[in-house]
Design a protein around this nucleic acid. Structure first.
Length: 559
RNA sequence: UGGGGAAUAGCCAAAUGGCAAGGCAACGGGUUUUGGUCCCGUGACUGGAGGUUCGAAUCCUCCUUCCCCAGCCA
């Protein structure tokens, strides 16, 4: 069997390693820090790591990088696991934690001390910063740099025992204070943090830094390819140094460019801030670029995976258009979502020549893209609702929906012709009066006359009501982080990112819709049932609109 | 003005010295009981300047621009 590999520099590198015998198996890993929810950028990394493992007949581990108990929480661990599973990936029994390796890491640290390659430093954080030098000036060695091995060992053990206060001492690697690579200027390996850890409780009061823990964790797990983002490229010499000093398994690190999306922020820090400031309801607010937000919004795992695959992977900084993601959402939903009729902004239509008290059950196709989806009946009667936008008293050019004197088709029902409108005392249209042609039942005219458009509708008597939440971009600008002097991303928020409409009229077949069910509201968009929805009060989220040429034509006419 | 990366169409991205893939967007047209879907068509001399070569996006030289690094964050 030949495996067809996608061509990108990561896969090419792995293929080469296998061919040259650098490794004879592939083991990747996805290493999230449980300090927030996963977002679409993580999805890119998840897809990359799990799919590569699969393609090369290898494994992908899940490992939580839980080295900083001041920021990490169990609830994030739970959410991360749920999101990865939902995306469709399986780490089987390989659920690991950097904290699993705390003993081993401690042992390694003592080993480095004994080799004279690490020392306990009493400098304050501010002093360490000063001694480090700058981008253009070399650093200055710490006065504690030449402590004896015995003293270092004693001090480090005392740190572990809790004899010193937070911040008073650290363990540092002894590398090169004048290295042009700042990461090699005696980086901190351990800090004192008298803080309980979600997994190790109060066992430790010293915690390894990411730079110290990460590479060794990969090594311990026998990872062959440590795929990470570009900003770690200049940490690689440090990771190599640790591994070489320790003489342990040496994974190959491959760096790729992280995903940026227009109109969205991908920083967990800022996402947390949006949650804390209650700008969004929570991490799973459908406007959030989080995986859980997208799930709640109605995006499918397949759409996200197709997107991740389509954007590819490279080392060039990139900002993908948000519309590209939406394209894959529509593409997947077009195949899967049952069609229904729902009127978001209803206006009443009375069919004057239709008999009072009669109800017809008309046949409607559930999904023209999927014949196995079958058909259903939709009730029709004298009074119906249509979309407010589908009527114009003074039609603009190219408007070929309903207007006084025009004839349109009601989907699956009849041709109707508008005769007149009734207005209230403020001049607002409250009723549209039409006549129908009984010959056109089902939507075709026996005389083959054509009609310029087809409208969706809901029988007034049979309509069920729902709340519908219309989401729009959270930010107004393509790069929300790019702001003028004295401003920040909050100034770029879209005040209209959520519009709620309450009296939408839905066809009765929707009465039993359950949370996360997805539908296409014909001619409007894709919608899914929100988790707030109950049988008494249905709540829908707009996942994404349908592509809308009429909007384009309209905006061109206006400009 | 230290170190590490990156430059191919509006966006993403192929190409591995041999006539510059593909997707999205945009634009034009066809089909259509969703102004949806679907189908057809339209766009590049590869950041710049030199050089090597029969031949360069690919190799060499110089230049320009952008991104990352001075946490006891990851």
């Amino acid at each position: 069997m030949t495996i067809e590999h996608k061509k990108d520099f990561v896969r090419e590198t792995i293929k080469k390693d296998l061919k040259e015998g650098k490794f004879n198996y592939v083991n990747t890993r996805f290493p999230p820090e449980p300090n927030g929810y996963l977002h679409i950028g993580h999805a890119k990394a998840i897809c990359l790591n799990f799919e590569i493992a699969k393609e090369f007949n290898g494994k992908c581990n899940l490992r939580f990088d839980d080295t900083n108990p001041t920021k990490e929480e169990q609830k994030y661990i739970d959410a991360i696991k749920e999101d990865i599973k939902w995306l469709g990936f399986d780490w089987e029994d390989r659920e690991y934690y950097a904290s699993n390796y705390f003993d081993k890491l401690y042992e390694y640290a003592e080993l480095l001390i004994k080799k004279g390659k690490a020392y306990v430093c009493d400098l304050s954080p501010e002093q360490i910063k000063q001694y480090r030098g700058t981008l253009t000036e070399p650093g200055v060695p710490s006065p504690y740099r030449d402590r004896t091995i015995e003293e270092n060992l004693k001090l480090f053990r005392e740190m572990k025992q809790g004899l010193y206060s937070d911040g008073s001492k650290v363990l540092r690697a002894k590398i090169d204070m004048s290295s042009p690579n700042l990461n090699l200027r005696d980086p901190v390996m351990y800090r004192i943090l008298k803080k309980s850890h979600p997994r190790t409780g109060n066992k430790w009061c010293i915690y390894p830094t990411y730079d110290w823990a990460h590479g060794q964790s990969d090594s311990i797990e026998g990872i062959t390819h440590s795929i990470c983002t570009l900003e770690f490229e200049d940490h690689r010499p440090l990771y190599d140094w640790f591994i070489e000093q320790l003489g342990i398994h040496h994974p190959r690190q491959i760096e790729f460019a992280r995903l940026n999306l227009t109109y969205t922020v991908m920083s967990k820090r800022i996402l947390l801030e949006l949650v804390k400031r209650k700008i969004v309801k929570d991490w799973d607010d459908p406007r959030m670029p989080t995986i859980s937000g997208m799930r709640r919004r109605g995006y499918t795992p397949q759409a996200i995976r197709n997107f991740a695959s389509a954007i590819g992977v490279s080392k060039a900084d990139n900002t993908v258009e948000f519309e590209y993601l939406e394209h894959f959402v529509r593409e997947d939903l077009n195949k899967k979502a049952p069609r229904v009729m729902a009127v978001l902004n209803p206006i009443k239509v009375i069919i004057d020549n239709y008999p009072e008290g009669i109800v017809e059950e008309l046949e409607a196709v559930n999904n023209p893209e999927d014949s196995s989806a079958g058909k259903r009946k939709v009730p029709f009667s004298k009074v119906i609702y249509i979309e407010n936008d589908d009527f114009m008293e003074k039609p603009m050019p190219k408007f070929y929906r309903l207007t006084v004197g025009s004839e349109v088709r009601l989907r699956y029902a009849y041709f109707i012709k508008c005769e007149s409108v009734v207005k209230d005392k403020n001049g607002n249209i409250v009723e549209i009066h039409c006549t129908y042609d009984p010959q056109t039942k089902g939507g075709d005219a026996p005389d083959r006359r054509k009609v310029k458009s087809t409208l969706h509708w809901v029988s007034a008597k049979h309509a069920i009501e729902a709340e519908v939440r219309l989401f729009d971009k959270l930010f107004l600008t393509e790069n929300p982080l790019k702001t003028g002097e004295g401003k920040n991303f909050l100034d770029n928020l879209n005040p209209d990112s959520l519009k709620i409409i309450y009296n939408c009229k839905l066809e009765p077949s929707l009465a039993n819709a359950k949370p996360f069910d997805i539908f296409q509201f014909e001619r409007v968009g894709y919608f899914c049932v929100d988790k707030d929805s109950t049988s008494e009060k249905l709540v829908f989220n707009r996942t994404v609109t349908l592509k809308d040429d009429w909007q384009k034509i309209k905006s061109k006419l206006i400009n």
